[in-house]
């Protein structure tokens, strides 16, 4: 599990002092998606202290967080939980850990690979790639057709001219991991 423990990794990467949490759950009380999380946000802090890293990294919680920052705005101890979750997601991806939530990592991967190819996000390509990976190719199909008819889903993607810089950025990012 890497060269440093997960708690230190998270504190260092996110810049958040998760140890100052006093478990009032004001985060969960205001979180729009907390009822769908398998581990409540503050409990992640507790599990980090216990060293139960595997549970955290395989949890749906880290992927379900919508990064809306409501928790961070109201936390009495100034813990930005969205940033904590970013650090955890990045760690899980780096270590190749597959958890309970499959859709979100696939979506993010498809999104970034599109940018690496074109420099811009292209909705039709993104949805196609995502559905190829996760199945449900015909999910939202009716919606898609309606949007297409409204001219909201251009079939052809835009591409940035100067892709060299973007390719370089992605390569260096991979090396930095």
């Amino acid at each position: 599990m890497g060269d440093t423990n997960l708690l230190d990794y998270v504190i260092q990467k996110s810049g958040q002092d998760v140890l100052s949490c006093y478990h009032c759950q004001k985060c969960a009380a205001g979180c729009p998606v907390a009822p769908f999380m398998d581990i409540q946000p503050n409990v992640i802090h507790r599990l980090l202290q216990y060293g139960r890293d595997d549970e955290i990294l395989k949890s749906a919680t880290i992927w379900i967080c919508a990064a809306c920052e409501t928790c961070g705005a109201r936390c009495p101890n100034d813990i930005d939980i969205a940033k904590v979750n970013d650090a955890l997601k990045q760690y899980a991806v780096r270590e190749g850990i597959k958890g309970k939530e499959k859709g979100m990592p696939a979506m993010h991967n498809a999104f970034l690979s599109g940018i690496e190819k074109r420099g811009r996000m292209h909705e039709v390509s993104l949805i196609r790639e995502l559905r190829m990976k996760t199945g449900g190719l015909f999910k939202d199909m009716k919606l898609g057709i309606k949007m297409f008819k409204l001219g909201k889903l251009p079939l052809f993607s835009e591409k940035v001219k100067n892709m060299g810089e973007i390719k370089k950025l992605f390569e260096k990012a991979r090396r930095a991991q």
Binding site: H23, Q25, K26, A29, Q40, V43, P76
Partner: peptide, 23 residues
Amino acid sequence: GKVSKLYREGDKVVVWGVDTLMG
């Protein structure tokens, strides 16, 4: 648990809280 938000709804004040012992 700590209350995250209060707002008016009709003649009530809605309290968004949490029971940490129940989760």
